[in-house]
Amino acid sequence: MHIHALSGDAEFLRILASSSFSGNIHSIFERTINLQCDQNDELYTIANDQLDNGPNTLVLDIKRFHETGLEVGDRVLSQGQTLQIGNKIEIAATQAKEWECTLPPYPSNIEILKVDIAFMKEYIAVHGKCGGMKRNSRPSTPFEAEMSNMLLQRSGLLREALAAGKSEEAVQYALGLVGLGPGLTPSGDDFLVGLFSIVNMPGAPYYLPFHFLEEIATEAKRLTNEISYMMVKKAVCGQVRESVVNLLQALSKGTASELLGALEKVLSIGSSSGTDMALGLVCGLELNREAGGRACLLKS
């Protein structure tokens, strides 16, 4: 089977062009397949045409993967901008449109930002999915109730510690969120991705020093699964998927309807993942608004 890549992460495309990618299929889902790279042990994703671009991701001209006959463990090799998976499929990346994650500058108009944050909060309250960071008013099990409590408590404490510039406490609370929650990418991870997206925006008034982010990235590896870890690791460096970038762009200089459209796209990610990320974004924005310019993390 021969498939064309429609678009792809610029770095992934460069690796393919240099014929230096080899690995195995790590996991298979309806809309994505993850490949584990021999060279750097990172996960790379091939996605169907319904998904957006993202770090380490190729978007293919294919609707679903279950007809490809691919299996976990199948060998993957690149050759001249083509990705060969077993003898089953061949992915040509020659015409793929390059995508690079570039976060827009932090919004400069504080008054508009205030309104946008309020809007996002209200919209998430109405349209966001419960069960993760957004608490279900009637949790269905004691497990869900306890998990919601822990998510709420730890995210609140993290925000307080960050606002107060208490570095060590903040690291502990952030790590307390990693791997916590339902879903393949636990809610705590998604929340942190949202938060890190904001603090990585150029010109964001709130500064998170490298050692803080580095510690999270290092420790997260043992605290969450490999797929979610890749997402957190990339977000620590400001690498997030296209729908999140589009939302940040809409916040930065978009119209109200662009903001709405972009927020909806984020909310539609996964089950509650989009909502969890959006709440992380809101937390990051509020943190910047309240503590930006006067607090940054200090080693206590």
Binding site: F29, L184, G270, S271, S272
Partner: peptide, 8 residues
């Protein structure tokens, strides 16, 4: 691994 929607 199951995707989040399936897991929930």
């Amino acid at each position: 691994y199951f995707d989040s929607v399936s897991l929930m």
